[in-house]
Design a protein around this nucleic acid. Structure first.
Length: 538
RNA sequence: GCGCUUGUGGCUUAAAUGGAAAAAGCGCUGGCCUCCGGAGCCAGAGAAUCCGGGUUCAAUUCCCGGCAAGCGCACCA
């Protein structure tokens, strides 16, 4: 396997470093340029001093390690002080044969070891439809979850519903106003309320007003939450668990956790409110948890919520949020630290905003004012797969400019179709081969016939899959997988154009079909991890 | 004013504890369909990585200082 090869080289290098009697950090990294080989190390730079140039040391190291790496390494070159390794191509051939035989199981990497992770994402307030920002978070959170699960983390996806507090009350009042306006009765939406047209549509659905002070709140809440769930379903995003903020108030968990903090002397009274000493955990100022009117702040219920996360035994807690929450992070870290959870195991991933353009026109968004393109509208316009891919293809820290016109206009040359087309081609090749009576079961294959440049390059790329995945896990950079898949698609399309896979030459055809099948495994898996659909035809 | 994030060809974006000549897509120029699906392929033009310093054998990457953009700085969520 891939990592074993790397390990052997690494260990051999380490031994050599000891010979030089220096304790240095060095890297073993993939080469950027083909001609440099597959891996290089900078060890010689680290060991160099006034007496010994990197070039000289590289040469010595090469001589020392060469005998130990026979079989794995085809040749070792030194150039400008770098030591370059060329992997024996049989390693690649063996790898694709294993994938051919064992499918995606062979690509699994046990990074997580069953560790329990909670991923909370989207968690949009049920006061309006999902926006583009939520869409980006949803696409990212879903894909990240899938990848972590594949790497043997025990993942739970959770959506936190803010159904308590001032915002939800304003929602109720806004709906009430819309309802009476429809009846021709003058009634103003509160200044801070929600002005979006969607509340008019919801108001139209009200047949009869029940005599309950929560009627409008509940009606709006239920309708909107239903819409949110529906949009997520269309987007292919699902949750294992839905948690309501109001529950923590109802079951006294907020009260309990505040008492707990009070006993630890972390709560004090000032100006008629209760304050939480977040400063002792590094926040810039203390924060109110119980307001003058005795109601809880968002932070108060959130502490209870995070206590609930911890109690369920999660070792890593990931919160995916928008950039408007960044100032909130120290408070949250303070909260969980005070509950005895290591703050570094709370990982807050901030997904930057997307700016929508329609050509030159920048589309400004405001949920409250009701001026926005919803996620649903975007999906309807350019399709769920293309939408997801646009989001996933960029790293989350980038402020994304998304031009709807471009996304639509280019739809046929959209990268996502390029990937899907590669998949369809692979699928079709297998089918075609079967029609030509090539059966893949129970055969011996001469895979050493896979020896042209394109085939070797493709096999190498397949070999790198595990590196990409572990990098994604390490950096939470889902976009790396999307990039990878685009690269490998390119290699494949090019290969396909140049060589005939299914031909009259039986042995060669079989060898190539092994490669095709292993590519298919990689594509199927990767598209699944990215949550992009696998079309049968296009 | 303070904080977080970002600044890479015309446009949208990559670049794994700092490493060799910065990589793709779109757009542009010129080619390729009697052949497993042309939603494809091949070739080409196009970048001193926002500016100024610093650390290093080596900086898109790290540090300091600017400039610009987005977002925050609530007893809202």
């Amino acid at each position: 396997m891939r990592s074993e090869v790397k390990d052997i080289i690494e260990k051999t290098l380490k031994k050599t470093a000891e010979y030089f009697k220096k304790d240095v950090d060095f890297a073993l990294l993939p080469c950027e340029k083909e001609e440099f080989g597959d891996f290089y190390t900078n060890l010689s730079f680290k060991l160099a001093d006034k007496e010994n140039s990197p070039q000289k040391i590289a040469e010595i190291i090469k001589q020392k390690i060469s005998p130990n790496l026979k079989g794995i390494i085809k040749k070792i070159e030194t150039k400008n002080g770098f030591i370059n390794f060329f992997i024996n191509e049989d390693i690649y051939r063996d790898h694709i044969l294993k994938i051919f035989q064992n499918g995606k199981e062979y690509l699994k990497e046990n990074i997580g070891n069953g560790k329990k992770i909670l991923i909370e994402f989207v968690s949009a307030n049920p006061t309006g439809p999902l926006t583009i920002a939520h869409g980006r978070q949803a696409a990212y959170g879903e894909s990240l979850s899938r990848i972590l699960k594949f790497c043997n983390f025990d993942v739970t996806k959770e959506y936190y519903i803010n159904d308590a507090g001032k915002q939800i009350e304003l929602l109720g009042e806004s709906l009430k106003a819309r309802y009476y306006q429809l009846k021709g009765i003058k009634c103003e939406i509160p200044e801070e309320g929600y002005f979006g047209d969607y509340l008019i549509d919801i108001a139209k659905k009200i047949k009869e007003v029940k005599d309950d002070k929560n009627f409008f709140v509940e009606f709006a809440f239920n309708e909107i939450l239903q819409d949110i769930k529906n949009d997520l379903k269309i987007f292919g995003v699902s949750f294992d668990s839905w948690v309501k903020e109001s529950e923590f108030i109802k079951n006294k968990e907020v009260e309990n956790v505040l008492n707990f903090l009070k006993n630890k002397n972390l709560i004090y009274e000032k100006d008629g409110s209760l304050w939480f000493k977040t400063t002792i955990f590094g926040d810039d100022k203390d924060r109110v948890v119980v307001k003058k009117d005795k109601s809880y702040t968002y932070l108060a219920t959130d502490i209870a919520y995070h206590k609930y996360k911890i109690e369920r035994g999660f070792e890593i807690i990931i919160n995916i949020v928008g950039p408007d929450h960044h100032g909130y992070i120290p408070r949250l870290k303070a909260s969980i630290a005070s509950l005895g959870f290591a703050p570094e195991n709370l990982i807050v991933l901030i997904v930057q905003l997307t700016t929508l353009y329609r050509g030159k026109e920048k589309l400004r968004m405001s949920t409250r004012k009701g001026q926005f393109i919803t996620l649903r509208q975007l999906i309807d316009e350019i399709g769920p797969d293309a939408t997801k891919f646009f989001f996933l293809f960029r790293k989350i820290d980038s402020h994304l400019d998304f031009d709807i016109e471009v996304a639509k206009k280019q739809s046929s040359e959209n990268p996502v179709y390029y990937l899907q087309y590669a998949y369809v081609r692979l699928k079709h090749l297998i089918k075609y081969a079967k029609e030509k009576e090539y059966t893949l079961e129970g055969n011996q294959f001469s895979i050493d016939l896979l020896n042209n440049d394109e085939e070797i390059e493709l096999m190498k790329k397949v070999w790198k899959f595990n590196d990409i995945i572990s990098n994604v896990v390490k950096t939470y950079g889902v976009h790396l997988l999307a990039e990878y898949l685009l690269d490998i698609s390119k290699l494949f399309h090019s290969y396909y154009q140049k060589y005939r896979i299914v031909s009259e030459e039986k042995e060669l055809t079989y060898a190539r079909l092994v490669l095709i099948k292993s590519l298919l495994v990689v594509f199927e898996l990767s598209l699944n991890l990215l949550n992009i659909s696998l079309p049968e035809r296009m």
